[in-house]
């Protein structure tokens, strides 16, 4: 290591630490460049009378993967059950190889997973769309759990609204259009997960697990995942609600968003005002509507 700068050493060591393990959870003999890991380790790690440089580096290599796989597994326990532990681990390793943590917090580790899964259906087993929906619901839960809470609209602000007004959406509100009723699946699997968790520390059992048998039929589902008083809730919404809310979230004016909400709708024109009144009352009651962010910044 003599002559190697601190930065070069750290870059070299981190690459070694982040290298995927063998199927037996040991450090690989060679890295992707074909170098012997024993030689790489010896560049900067000193052996002692009990452990070689390779073995010492291997401790950190294993810690890295155990920690990150554990963190990802905690965020996607239902996905792990849908895929089974082996397939989930393979997916997680491939994902983390492509998307290592770019954040100081493990909270964001799964941020790119859904997008990555869309590009890599080969990791999703036979129930690809279900796996994707389950992952989307679980990531929505992560976001809804600790995203910020914006102040809801006040009566005074509502009084000033007109057709061109823009509204913002609550920061913890997550809107999903799903191919399956994946909220049911996630609820069921989280309950099974909870039963399997150790009593000591709400830590899910991360042992080997076969894919769960699930009897779920495909059905287009629109879902809002949100938070009230610190707890997470799912609320099934209609396609029109979903379309209206996402239109508002995209920054469309209120009038335009209402129009977009009823695109390809089966709800007849005569019924729409009543439906809208009910939806907006619910959304306001749940503090889902806020001032738009742009106006706040200005």
């Amino acid at each position: 290591m003599s002559g190697m700068s601190l930065e070069t050493m750290q870059r070299r060591m981190l690459a070694a630490v982040m290298q995927p393990l063998t199927p037996e959870d040991t450090m690989r003999e060679r890295n992707e460049a074909g170098e012997r890991m024993a030689d790489v380790a010896a560049e900067f790690v000193a052996p002692n009378d009990r452990l070689t440089a390779f073995e010492r580096l291997e401790i950190y290599n294993r810690q890295y993967w155990f920690r990150l796989l554990g963190a990802l597994g905690e965020d996607f326990p239902a996905l792990r059950r849908v895929l089974g532990s082996r397939r989930f681990d393979a997916l997680a390793v491939a994902y983390l190889k492509e998307h290592p943590s770019r954040s100081f917090t493990l909270r964001n580790l799964g941020r790119e997973l859904v997008g990555w899964m869309r590009k890599h259906p080969e990791y999703l087993g036979r129930r690809k769309r279900l796996a994707l929906d389950v992952a989307r619901v679980e990531w929505a839960c992560v976001e809804a759990f600790d995203n910020g809470e914006l102040a809801p609209l006040t009566a005074e602000e509502i009084g000033d609204l007109h057709g061109g007004s823009r509204l913002g959406l609550q920061a913890h509100l997550q809107l999903l259009e799903l191919d399956f009723p994946a909220d049911d699946v996630v609820l069921e699997l989280h309950q099974r997960e909870r039963k399997g968790a150790s009593e000591g520390g709400a830590r899910p059992e991360m042992g080997e697990m076969k894919p769960e048998a699930l009897d779920v039929e495909r059905r287009r589902t629109w879902l809002a995942v949100h938070r009230a008083d610190g707890s997470l809730y799912y609320r099934r919404i209609t396609k029109e609600e979903y379309q209206t809310l996402t239109a508002l979230g995209r920054g469309l004016g209120l009038g335009e968003a209402l129009g977009a909400g009823f695109r390809r709708s089966r709800i007849g024109p005569a019924e729409r005002p009543a439906a809208l009144q009910e939806w907006f009352a619910h959304w306001a009651g749940l503090s889902w509507l806020t001032k738009p962010e742009i106006e706040e910044r200005a």
């Binding site: 009566a155 509502i158 009144q277 939806w279 009352a281």
Partner: peptide
């Protein structure tokens, strides 16, 4: 529709 939405908003708030 706009009136209905605003009325709902007011009630919910």
């Amino acid at each position: 529709m706009l009136s209905a939405a605003l009325a709902g908003l007011a009630v919910g708030t």
